[in-house]
Amino acid sequence: MTEQAYNFAYLDEQTKTMIRRAILKGVAIPGYQVPFASREMPMPYGWGTGGVQVTAACLVPEDTLKVIDQGADDTTNAVSIRRFFQRTAGVAVTEATTEATVIQTRHRIPETALAEGQILVYQVPIPEPLRFLEPRETETRKMHELEDYGLMHVKLYEDIARHGQIATSYDYPVKVEGRYVMDPSPIPKFDNPKLAGNAAIQLFGAGREQRIYALPPYTEAISLDFDDYPFVASKADHACDLCGAAASYLDEVITDDQGSRMFVCSDTDFCGSRRAAGHVGRLGTPLAGGK
């Protein structure tokens, strides 16, 4: 089959209409999980089928797309999804957060603050924050309906009882606009504060679970906690070894068999642009003449 045989952005227009309708409903009711008829995509579940469908429904030919996987633009998942849309939609792609109009992400929010007009699409494996506490879907829906969220704190209680602190470090539940408890997808809890009051539209797509939900711009999203164990947006206690950034989320990289390690920004675009601007970390070398 030739590439021209695909509709723009792979999905047929009726499917996109259906997904857009779900997105609009999600934006209208922040944090509420809207069911949608998820399609088979040419990639396995768990690789971002939900995010890809949401992105496909949002894209227009003038868009510039950025795809990140754990903050990086150059990992398998990011590269293949970016290439997928290059081929099926022919849109411009970029690695620069500020230049993108649509950003599909897996498990990170870019370090650079997003602006109005940008759309951030999350890939969500399990949209139901109560799933591992209450296995019955009928019951979890009822709990959302009745705002019966005591169980969510039981999970945090268990964390403290077992580990002495809230050990949940990613997938950290938030309460949206004082109503729905929402699973922010497995972003590190370091990113949770960026969910709230963000200028961009944040859309969440779960393909296998067939749910879409959303945070419109400037929405309140409060991370759940206890009065005496408040929420802490934690990160590795280091500065980036390449660009020296002290306040960005870091990956730990083992560099040899003797256990040497370095910490680098997980957001590759953020790190790269800092290095291009002349910042140098502990193990970094200045880039020759900028990039």
Binding site: D148, Y149, G150, L151, H153, V154, Y157, E158, I160, A161, R162, D225, F226, D227, D228, Y229
Partner: peptide, 23 residues
Amino acid sequence: ISAGGNVGERLMAVGARHYGDIR
């Protein structure tokens, strides 16, 4: 979940948000 979590669940369901008190 632990015995303490079991006992605390109803407290948290009615709005208790202080870990020390719940425990």
